[in-house]
């Protein structure tokens, strides 16, 4: 039996000679690589991936708008987790040492507001409907986000907005906006138009080259909101998902997709198809190349078809 000292010597020699693989528990902490790109004077965009939530992208699928305010930066939408909010806060101090002065949430979906936790002591501004929906859905969203994203979500607790925005002309940290209280993607969708540059921050009423999502959508209301946004004729549109739009393509593409979706589901109900059969329908070329397809189409069939079908099929008793 070797002495304790001999054993220690042996251990030291082994440790010196062999490079052990890093144990799993020592893996690098998940971190977001957020890059604010200047898009207009005093305005930056952090562009999200056009994929669905995954453990590879950590849920960084949303676009955030960053605007220079009088006492710091105004952030529109805060990402999918506490860790995302922390990365946002740290990254933005490189643009303005004073950091974030005010937060806006365009609507109550978790990829747009789960970073709020980091900014809980600042004004977090949204429509009243968004505040209510975030309060009632937050825990259920949170369960699902932990399931989808795993450790990226560690420590995240949903923090609903704390300040209701007025409509029409508003000032946020000294910066002037037109606030449009709309709906259709959810029951409360806020659009901000920046007075100085004309930039429209459209939230998820506008998608570009990424499939629109419909878990709380009302398609007719959404189309009416898109008409309102078309009429603004903004020189640039920052969509909720997808690249910055300087031509209005995001509004046209979102509208065309919703029209196709509605017609496809209606025709399917009229010909007696069920959801699995509809999901097997190939997407037209103009929509097949969108990010997160065909998954989003499949999700939309689940969200929209049961009610639509019940309204279309005739009574049989």
């Amino acid at each position: 039996m070797p002495s304790r000292r001999a054993a220690l010597r042996l251990l030291a020699a082994t440790a010196g000679a062999v490079v052990l693989p890093a144990p799993v528990f020592a893996q690098a902490r998940h971190s977001y690589d957020l890059r604010p790109e200047p898009v207009l004077p005093g305005i930056w965009m952090i562009e999200g991936s056009t994929e669905y939530f995954s453990r590879e992208n950590g849920g960084a699928i949303v676009n955030c708008a960053v605007l220079q305010g009088q006492t710091g930066l105004i952030v529109v939408d805060t990402g999918s987790s506490r860790r995302y909010g922390e990365a946002l806060s740290a990254t933005l101090r490189k643009l303005d040492l004073r950091g974030v002065s005010a937060v806006v949430n365009t609507h109550h979906h978790p990829d747009h507001y789960f970073g709020n936790q980091v900014f809980a002591d600042r004004p977090i501004i949204a429509l009243g409907g968004t505040m209510e929906a975030a309060r009632s859905n937050g825990d259920a969203f949170s369960d699902n986000m932990y399931r989808l994203l795993g450790d990226w979500m560690r420590g995240t607790e949903p923090v609903p907005p704390n300040t209701v925005i007025a409509s029409d002309e508003v000032q946020i940290d000294g910066r002037r906006f037109t606030a449009l209280p709309l709906a259709g993607h959810t029951e409360a969708d806020l659009v901000l138009v920046d007075a100085e540059t004309g930039l429209m921050i459209a939230g998820d009423l506008a998608f570009l080259d990424r499939a629109p999502t419909t878990p709380h959508a009302d398609l007719a209301t959404w189309q009416a909101s898109l008409d309102t946004l078309q009429a603004v004729a903004a020189p640039a549109i920052l969509p909720g998902h997808g690249p910055l739009d300087r031509t209005g393509a995001s509004l046209r593409q979102t509208s065309a997709y919703l029209t196709w979706l509605s017609e496809t589901l209606t025709e399917a109900a009229r010909t007696g198809q069920d959801m699995v059969e509809i999901m097997a329908t190939p997407l037209p070329a103009e929509f097949a190349g969108m990010g997160a397809q065909p998954e989003e189409f499949h999700r939309s069939v689940s969200h929209l078809f049961p009610a639509l079908e019940r309204a279309i099929l005739p009574r049989a008793n």
Partner: peptide
């Protein structure tokens, strides 16, 4: 009950 038959495709659907 909502539903109907589609003779050409042999379907009967109901909710």
């Amino acid at each position: 009950i909502h539903g109907r038959l589609w003779a050409a495709s042999g379907r009967a659907r109901l909710i």
